[in-house]
Write a protein that binds this DNA or RNA. Structure first.
Lengths: 222, 222
DNA sequence: GCCTCCTTGTTGTTAAAACAACATACTTGT
DNA sequence: ACAAGTATGTTGTTTTAACAACAAGGAGGC
């Protein structure tokens, strides 16, 4: 196990590699490799362990009642997934996790994370703290998406998203991490309609756009 | 401090009242009373403590860039709020918390929750576990709302919400905890348009509605 | 009972987004 | 450089939801 890699992840941050080694036993660590398209877990199942992607990447998907698949999240190396379900034993998954490519996953029992470590795990508390930090960060990301999609107009959603990006970068000029289709999915709008709206906003002098690069113009008090 | 009340909350569940008493010191517990309309915390601020409503209730609000206020959540007695921000020191609040009525709030330092307790807090681990359970539950609620609002049609959103309610109740006949306006807000749609769509769905034989009571009819494989 | 307030359903109009289809640019691999 | 595939912008049409205005139906107070 590459404990040096693990020590750089959000979950094990601040824990020396040699200590991680001993913790993995406590956490009933187990790895498994998946091929592209293979399911790590499926909607309706229950899980008792959280997952961490060691290499490759996975998608968190949701199928609606008509079978339309939508991608909620992508999880890449070093990131964890299914941690909320692992913290709620018996809770049925609303989503499925599927490998985008050949992907190695580390499974960690949350049960063992909560109970006092029988061995001398001096960094057990650090781990739990990291866990809460990850959970808090993810929660805020979800809240933010809800806010950005609460406006009923495409322009409103774009402005909500773009002005947040501006404050995040501390600058009215910035790049976004999405292409058009991904941004449209994130905001739950049609791509072409969004593209059209971006053009209108540009004509209205609200914003300057070129592919991923945006400039918010000082039309009103941002 | 009413430790008996606290022992019944999600945060202190499983911890005897006498142990809660000693924990409160560790957590730098402090209470404050707010009058209706008074802000507990405001967008843009940072916090270092989480809050628990002891009596009364508060609203979690978000103002968009045009000043339109939208209510994201209501927190009533025994529930916690701002715990995600308290776990991420320095993170600026995207939301504000305001008292709906005369409300007593208990503030708890998360910093002290993470560090090993110098006193004999045998239930410290239980507290942290409860905290993670609460965070996980809230996260799933947020994810669920995102899923229910990801459809682009009102009917799609209603079906997503209603079919989830049906599976939750384990029955196609159930009551929902929202009135029409609240449901419309939750699904981010116009109330009258939603009311209209519900009527159409009833005419189409998909659902039977009477105020808060719903029956999903077996039109297709739910 | 009666009045008022609040909730819900209905309708028609207007505005907006979805959708489809296509043209143009940009990428990537060879 | 070229070809194939992807991403983006544009346009016109159709569908849909927002919006406004109002009527009907409880719920609660007096």
């Amino acid at each position: 196990m590459d404990t040096l890699f693990l020590s750089k992840t959000d979950l094990f941050r601040g824990i020396p590699p040699e200590d991680i080694e001993s913790m993995l036993g406590c956490l009933k660590a187990a790895t498994k490799t998946y091929q592209r398209g293979e399911f790590i877990c499926r909607e309706g199942e229950t899980v008792t362990a959280m997952g961490m992607v060691l290499s490759g990447s996975i998608s968190i998907e949701n199928d609606d009642i008509w079978g339309n698949r939508s991608i909620l999240d992508r999880v890449s190396a070093g990131q964890v997934f299914a941690e909320n379900y692992a913290c709620l034993p018996g809770e049925k998954l609303m989503i499925s996790a599927v490998a985008n490519e050949t992907t190695e996953v580390l499974f960690l029992s949350t049960e063992c994370m909560f109970t006092v470590c029988p061995h001398a795990c001096g960094f057990h508390n650090k781990l739990i703290r990291n866990m809460l930090t990850i959970a808090a960060r993810k929660s805020l990301n979800l809240s933010r998406r809800i806010m950005h999609t609460s406006s009923k107009s495409i322009r409103g959603r774009l402005l909500s998203y773009l002005s947040f990006q501006a404050t995040q970068h501390g600058c009215r000029e910035f790049d976004i991490p999405f292409n058009r289709q991904q941004l449209a999915d994130y905001l739950s709008v049609d791509r072409s309609a969004m593209s059209n709206e971006l053009s209108k906003m540009q004509r209205d002098g609200i914003v300057k756009v070129e592919r991923n690069h945006f400039v918010l113009l000082e039309s009103d008090g941002l």
